[in-house]
Simulated scan of single mutants.
Amino acid sequence: MSQSQHIKVLIVGGHRVGKTTLFCQLVRGQSFPGGNDSLKQSSEYIILNGNLHIEIHDCLVSSPKSLITQTWRNVNAIIYMFSYEDLRSLHEVSVWFRHVKELLCDGLVHQIIVGNKVDLAKISEEESFDSTLKTLCKELSVTDQDKFSVTATTGDGIDAIKARIGEKFREYVTRGPFPDSLCIVPRQTHSGCMCIN
Rank of each mutant, 00 (worst) to 15 (best):
Glu125Gly: 05
His99Gly: 00
Phe169Leu: 10
Gly107Pro: 02
Leu90Thr: 03
Lys8Glu: 01
Leu60Trp: 01
His6Lys: 14
Ile196Asp: 03
Ile7Lys: 13
Leu39Lys: 04
Met81Asp: 03
Leu39Glu: 04
Tyr172Trp: 05
Val93Thr: 06
Ile68Thr: 12
His15Asp: 00
Thr153Pro: 00
Ile7Ser: 10
Leu104Ser: 09
Leu22Gln: 02
Ile158Tyr: 11
Phe129His: 05
Ser63His: 14
Val118Tyr: 09
Glu92Leu: 11
Ala121Ser: 13
Ala152Met: 04
Val118Ala: 12
Leu182Ser: 14
Lys122Thr: 06
Tyr84Pro: 03
Gln145Ala: 09
Cys137Asp: 04
Ser63Cys: 13
Trp72Val: 01
Lys138Ser: 12
Gly166Glu: 09
His99Asp: 00
Lys40Val: 12
Pro33Arg: 03
Arg28Leu: 10
Gly14Pro: 00
Leu22Ala: 09
Ile158Pro: 04
Glu125Ile: 02
Val61Asp: 11
Leu120Val: 12
Thr69Asp: 00
Ile78Asp: 06
Ile54Met: 15
Asp119Leu: 11
Ile78Thr: 08
His6Pro: 02
Gln3Asp: 14
Ile113Gly: 03
Ile46Arg: 13
Arg98Asp: 12
Gly29Arg: 01
Tyr172Gln: 07
Asp156His: 11
Thr69Ala: 06
Arg88Ile: 12
Leu182Val: 14
Gly13Pro: 03
Leu67Cys: 01
Ser42Lys: 05
Val61Leu: 00
Lys65Met: 02
Thr135Tyr: 05
Ser94Ala: 06
Lys162Leu: 15
Pro177Leu: 06
Asn74Ile: 00
Ser128Glu: 12
Ala152His: 04
Ser38Gly: 12
Ser141Asn: 15
Met194Gln: 04
Arg170Pro: 02
Thr153Glu: 14
Asp156Met: 13
Gln111Met: 05
Asn76Trp: 11
Met81Val: 08
Lys168Asp: 00
Asp130Gly: 04
Ser181Gln: 11
Ser191Lys: 14
Asn116Met: 09
Met194Trp: 02
Asp156Glu: 15
Thr20Val: 10
Asp106Lys: 13
Gly29Ile: 05
Met1Asp: 06
Asp159Ser: 11
Ile47Ala: 07
Ile165Trp: 04
Asp58Gln: 07
Val93Pro: 01
Asp37Gly: 05
Val173Lys: 05
Gln70Glu: 06
Asp130Val: 02
Gly50Ser: 06
Phe82Met: 09
Phe23Val: 04
Thr151Asn: 14
Thr189Arg: 03
Tyr80Ile: 01
Val118Ile: 15
